[in-house]
């Protein structure tokens, strides 16, 4: 062994020998840092540059952020943000009402709950893009099975241009995404219900509480933490929304940007679209940073709140 640097080497070896378990963390940490953390830090760096993706990058300080908040993109940004919030409210309401409702039903039935669970979760396993294609065919205004079904059963007024009407398009997409995603909150709520100790319910029954009262006074408070966890997930999910809108409406998020969310705005600005020349990798990166800086603190906060409600 080389005698010139004995102390350093041996102290390093000593550290490793003492903390050899750290070697097991290393591969995951390495992959995670290189392919997730590093690109994100780079994103933040890009956001200070004007860069079309080709050619030189020009440092413009907070210029891109100015464009987003006060400049040409303001209208788009505000609208997209509103749509994301709308999506969150709808998604969260649906998963709370139907997710909890169906979970309660599953909790109460004596037979078949395993089969139901499998069925309910099934659409979750399908690719969002493929779900998009499928519903695009089903919602086709003229040939689609949805409108033809309504016409067949005499509900003609429900035969609508679902994906073409600015007022209907986003709710329709959120309904499709609920069709795909509802299985998850159902299962999570069910698990939470099953974890409620029996004594609570028994005690309430002895006090003379009836079906609905039991639900109201025992189950609802006890599943509040679960609701918060699901709320956090719903928030993260709706702020990441992209695939389904992209598959159904393309990056232009039509009609007339009625389905434009931050994800599609990011994609359009970063890569440009058909016939449109508006591309800016720097501007796109700035949007990404904005999305991230909404997402991270809010979901952190929601998570903290949900911890408070835990028993």
């Amino acid at each position: 062994m080389n005698s010139e640097i004995p102390t350093r080497q041996s102290s390093f070896l000593l550290f490793i020998r003492k903390h050899n378990y750290l070697l097991l963390v290393l591969p995951a940490l390495l992959l995670y840092t290189v392919f997730i953390i590093y690109p994100f830090l780079n994103s933040i760096r890009y956001s200070f540059f004007e860069w079309s993706g080709v050619g030189p990058m020009t440092y413009i300080g907070l210029g891109n952020y100015h464009t987003i908040f006060f400049g040409a993109l303001q209208e788009f940004f505000v609208r997209a943000l509103k749509h994301n919030l709308f999506a969150f409210v709808i998604n969260f309401s649906l998963q709370t009402i139907f997710g909890l409702g169906l979970a309660l039903a599953l909790y109460a039935v004596t037979k078949g709950s395993n089969l139901y669970k499998t069925i309910f979760f099934l659409p979750n396993t399908l690719s969002t893009v493929i779900v998009g294609f499928l519903w695009n065919l089903l919602l086709n205004p003229q040939w689609g099975m949805v409108n033809r079904f309504f016409e067949m059963v005499g509900l003609d007024f429900l035969s609508r241009p679902w994906l073409g009407d600015p007022k209907l398009a986003l709710p329709t997409i959120l309904a499709v995404s609920a069709w795909r995603g509802l299985g998850f909150p159902i299962l999570v709520y069910l698990a939470a219900l099953l974890a409620i100790p029996e004594e609570y319910v028994e005690a309430a029954k002895i006090d003379g509480a009836k079906g609905f009262q039991i639900i109201h006074h025992i189950y609802i408070p006890l599943i509040l933490p679960t609701t918060f966890t699901l709320m956090t997930l719903s928030f993260i999910w709706t702020f990441n929304m992209f695939d389904l809108i992209f598959a159904l409406q393309g990056a232009s998020a039509g009609p007339n940007y009625a389905t434009d969310v931050l994800g599609t705005l990011f994609y359009r600005i970063t890569f440009g679209g058909m016939g449109s020349s508006a591309t800016g990798m720097g501007l796109g990166a700035a949007i990404a940073v904005v999305i991230f800086s909404v997402l991270f603190p809010v979901s952190y906060l929601l998570n903290r709140i949900s911890k408070k409600f835990e028993l």
Binding site: A72, D165, P166, K167, S252, G254, P255, N256, Y257, G273, G275, S276, S277, A278
Partner: peptide, 18 residues
């Protein structure tokens, strides 16, 4: 340039038709 007429007109027509 940005915004371009093709994009403006496309989204705009959807807005006036609805």
């Amino acid at each position: 340039g940005v915004p371009d007429i093709h994009t403006l007109l496309g989204a705009g027509m959807q807005a006036i038709l609805s």
